[in-house]
Design a protein around this nucleic acid. Structure first.
Length: 495
RNA sequence: GCCCCCAUCGUCUAGAGGACCAGGACGUGGCCCUUUCAAGGCUAAGACAGGAGUUCGAAUCUCCUUGGGGGCACCA
């Protein structure tokens, strides 16, 4: 490559980062790191109407959380700044006017109403170029009247434009199908097209890696580069991420669910709040549209940066494999240390409203559920009962297969008695005592343990029983067993 | 409607003319382990959208069809 590698991630401050944008940022980052280039963060805030307060902070925070650092941009500076477009409007105006002077652009006074009726009547052929053919006198008069205007690009009327996409090859369009796009809006701000081209040029961007949804603008931008007499950066369009079920792009507006009923998340902060780890998310995102090779699914961001290249990017868009993220997050969770796991549990439980969590208890619980959770939601489901005052038990869940209420009652009473007299309330002694109790009662271990599990946890699926008892302690264990026995003896009333 | 992009198991993908009766992973089924559920181990089912070419030979190249997707703002 003849230019040093300089790539950018250029989000608009319109809210939280979309997971697809995060993937784009990641690929740019990997590309920069692989070639020892620079990764630049630029904020494209040319639409005042869509600006959302706090977005910039959210973008910065999100990228940092993912572990993506930028060499130039907000908060870190750089020689090509400012990196926020609203601080560069003078530059855009200057170059828009330059195009007007070169007769490659013109002032357009058409009202929004006229444009609206145009698009309603025609079959979406774009602007009819009315003002392109205004005479010098027309312009002078409208200027004198102080009519507001926009600046439009004079698109060539004939011929074709070809853009070479690194992962798709040549993309060619008829110029007659291109419209005279707006460069400067009536409010004095540039449009995305102008600002993007001007900035990429002056920031000496070498490669543009962006989403597939931008393909149609590539030939348009190529025309702009040509009109300016600038070299266009090398461009590559990444495949889009589609909604898993349903149709269309993965979007905040289309909510869908995985087959096991988990909600498909869309915004970066949603993943974070749900307990997905940044390293898992990075690994996961890297595998959409690109693959590590060697049949490896699990790898670090450093490893992928080492071998990242554009040639192995898959041009086809695909659905968002949310289930696979769950599995991957579980894989990463299992690698966590006890301390990390404890803090993971704490965050999950506190987020669900549990308070005053005992640190030592968490330390005992963590290893027990480490292989059983994929996200915060799972932690609450698997470990919440430890901290409940009362556990939900009904006769229906309590009475096991081939057992009667009387048998169940007897089992509970006998267990209470056994446990009250147990010298050591520990996993091993508990198991020994209860196994012999099952035998003495003529019950299968499956039956007795099933009763106890429900009585102690309120659920049929739970962490290992004896460990659970040991953690709960003798007092709580007995209390819950007795409470369960109460629900059996009493006729069922509404709870 | 117009323009553009894409097409391998249900899903994410490997595959750059012979190494492919197509490999991995998630998911699913089964077995083992087992007090439930996981984790772990083993195992099974599962795909080159269709049709024409090119070639001795095509998942790989070309064309058409079909299907999917994206875009057609003074939004990015």
């Amino acid at each position: 490559m003849d230019h040093p590698v300089r790539v950018r991630f250029a989000p608009s401050p319109t809210g939280s980062i979309h997971i697809g944008s995060a993937r784009t940022a990641l690929f740019n980052w990997l590309f920069a790191r692989h070639y020892g280039g620079r990764f630049i963060l630029r904020i494209e805030d040319t639409d005042q109407n869509r600006f959302v307060q706090g977005s910039l902070e959210q973008i910065i925070d999100g990228l940092r959380w993912l572990g993506l650092d930028w060499d130039e941009g907000p908060e870190v500076g750089g020689e090509y700044g400012p990196y926020i477009q609203s601080a560069r409007t003078e530059l855009y105006r200057e170059w828009a006017n330059w195009l007007v002077d070169q007769d490659r652009a013109y002032r357009c006074y058409c009202t929004r109403e006229r444009l609206k009726s145009l698009s309603d009547s025609q079959d979406t052929q774009g602007y009819d170029r009315h003002c392109r053919y205004l005479t010098a006198e027309d312009h002078a008069r409208k200027q004198a009247d102080g009519e507001s205007y926009v600046i439009r690009f004079k698109m060539p009327l004939e011929g074709t434009t070809t853009v070479h996409d690194v992962i798709r090859g040549d993309i060619t369009v008829e110029n007659s199908g291109l419209t005279d796009l707006v460069l400067m809006k009536a409010d004095g701000f540039p449009t995305y097209h102008l600002a993007n081209v001007v900035d990429d040029h002056f920031m000496e961007i070498s490669h543009i890696l962006r989403g597939e949804e931008w393909i149609p603008t590539a030939p348009v931008h190529k025309q702009l580069y040509d009109a300016f007499g600038w070299e266009m950066p090398i461009i590559a369009h990444l495949p889009v991420i589609l909604n898993p079920n349903g149709k269309g792009k993965l979007s905040k507006r289309t909510v869908s669910f995985t087959q096991d009923g988990r909600k498909v998340l869309v915004l970066l902060h949603e993943f974070r709040q749900a307990g997905y780890l940044p390293e898992a998310l990075i690994n996961f995102l890297t595998n959409i549209g690109w693959s590590f090779g060697d049949d490896r699914e699990i790898f670090t961001i450093t490893e992928s940066a080492e071998r990242f290249d554009l040639s192995r990017i898959n041009p086809a868009g695909g659905r968002f494999p949310m289930e696979k993220l769950g599995w991957l997050n579980g894989v990463y969770l299992r690698q966590k240390s006890l301390e990390e796991m404890v803090s993971y549990l704490r965050t999950a439980l506190e987020g669900a409203g549990y308070q005053d969590l005992d640190e030592e208890m968490l330390q005992h619980i963590a290893p027990l559920i480490q292989t059983r959770v994929q996200c915060y939601e799972d932690v609450v489901a698997r470990a919440g009962f430890f901290f409940m005052e009362v556990v939900p038990v009904t006769p229906e869940t309590l009475i096991q297969d081939n057992m009667t209420a009387e048998m169940t009652d007897r089992a509970l009473v006998a267990t209470v008695e056994t446990l009250e007299n147990l010298p050591e309330f520990e996993t091993q002694s508990l198991e020994e005592a209860l196994r012999s109790l099952a035998e003495a009662l003529g019950l299968k271990t499956k039956q007795l343990f099933g009763v106890l599990r429900v009585a102690l946890t309120g659920q049929t699926v739970a962490p290992p029983l004896f460990e659970t008892m040991a953690i709960l302690g003798r007092q709580t264990t007995l209390k819950r067993l007795q409470a369960a026995q109460q629900t059996l003896s009493k006729p069922q009333v509404e709870s």
